[in-house]
Design a protein around this nucleic acid. Structure first.
Lengths: 257, 257
DNA sequence: TCTTCTTATAAGTCGGACTTATTTCTAGTC
DNA sequence: GACTAGAAATAAGTCCGACTTATAAGAAGA
């Protein structure tokens, strides 16, 4: 219960969001009147109105004069915050499938973006990559800083595609997965092997070897996805098949290129 | 100038959005005080507050007590509406690159989703596909209805992947491209050939031939992207290279499978 | 020089009045 | 009886002006 801030409007909005996301408030139904909501939550009507304005911006409701505020289908909301609420019925609780879904999408994006970046990167992009590599090296052994630098690295790859939609998509995906510990699990174990792998990727992009880039990134994800899922299952105490071999060297495919 | 509604709060929010998207208001700078904005726009402070709440939900600003409302980087906003504003400096005006970007991302999503759908589709999904095919057939010759049905078809494919992130991503992409005429250009020319191509795709998905599905969808996009771009350039009066051969038979690759 | 207190400021909250668009009921017309 | 025009009711939209609260920044003290 802390998606947004701790103002009253945020709390009211979050309460309504949970009710919509959980299906207690169905699409097509009508919210209580602003005045009623205000009374029910013990706040002023202005606060309720601000909350509704928030929900509207997230594509969850649609106020209509004289009829009331209509609830929309949360599945059709393009907001990452709403998606989070749908995926996370209780704070910190995800089913394993969501993890798989996120990793799957991330893999697709990474692969395509890396290949495109290899084709279109400018010299400025290369300079940015080098700067990121230095930053990563400087943060070895500091998981949080290293993970943050890796996020910036992905953004840098997105920029190098010269495709603004990919850039926005990366922001979107990032916001969905933010604070999902399991998603950051692998990166937190990063070591010199990981760093040298990234360096190799940068080199391939610099040489514009798009096919090799694709193969490399594909290999990395094929290697790491089952391991992240296994590790996450392990962490949550669920049964798992793939316990052994969770050592970190996703760039094993490097030699084959 | 009609991204959102026509309430005063919407108009104020949109004005500020344009200023942020165009760079007139820089990330890190501080908005005028609520009271000043209210006076400047000739509205009450409540209206300004609702507008700011909207912008906040779109990830554009961050109010901080005692300091004011800080402008964030619109490039990091995950909101499709904001992206639209960035891409569309004036209503209806896009540079051709944006079109390419959108089609590129769409192709990637379509290809991966279709392949996944082929692997994971349930019998319910197949039934939904068949229903959509019937609907498409019924709307042949009615471009708007046909296009709407095709949007639902894509959503159906997304559902068949059993991956909720893909489903959300499709909503996101749809909202970005909504009302961009050029994006719908190809589909508006749809004819029997297109319909039979879709039917063939459904068949391949039913037979779970993921590799063939991938090849088919890849082929369709490889064929249609340059033609959509050419047609868009033609429509906007810009010079173009690829004028000839804009007949619609994107499923030419069908026979090769 | 550093810490602690004060103060000014801008967002946050309040309550209550008034406006406007739209639904729905009512009454009048054919 | 069906149909249209108008009246009433309703819920969102707008406005006003005052009060509260957190905090950045400056003042006072150690």
């Amino acid at each position: 219960m802390a998606i947004w801030g701790d103002r009253k409007a945020d709390r009211v909005a979050e309460t309504l969001l949970r009710q919509i996301a959980s299906g207690r408030l169905r699409p097509g139904s009508v919210l209580a009147r602003e005045a009623e909501l205000a009374e029910a939550h013990g706040v002023n009507r202005s606060v309720v109105r601000e909350a509704i304005r928030q929900l509207e911006a997230h594509g969850l409701v649609q106020p209509v004069k004289r009829r009331g505020t209509i609830v929309l289908d949360p599945l059709e909301s393009p907001s990452p915050d709403v998606l989070r609420a749908m995926l996370e019925p209780e704070p910190g609780v995800f089913d394993g499938k969501v993890l798989r879904d996120l990793l799957e999408v991330r893999a697709t994006l990474d692969i395509e973006m890396s290949a495109l970046a290899a084709q279109r990167r400018t010299d400025d992009d290369l300079a940015a990559f080098e700067a990121l590599l230095r930053r990563l090296r400087g943060h070895l052994g500091q998981p949080d800083a290293y993970a943050a630098a890796m996020d910036d690295f992905i953004l840098c790859v997105a920029r190098a595609t010269q495709n603004r939609i990919y850039q926005a998509l990366v922001s979107w995906h990032h916001r969905v997965r933010a604070d999902i510990d399991a998603m950051n699990l692998m990166i937190r174990l990063a070591n010199e092997s990981h760093l040298s792998g990234v360096a190799f990727l940068v080199q391939l992009i610099a040489e514009q070897r798009a096919d090799d880039v694709r193969a490399l990134v594909e290999g990395v994800h094929a290697w790491s996805i089952p391991r992240v899922l296994a590790a996450a299952a392990l962490a949550s105490g669920a049964p798992l098949e793939l316990q052994a071999d969770i050592t970190f060297s996703p760039f094993h495919s490097r030699e084959s290129l």
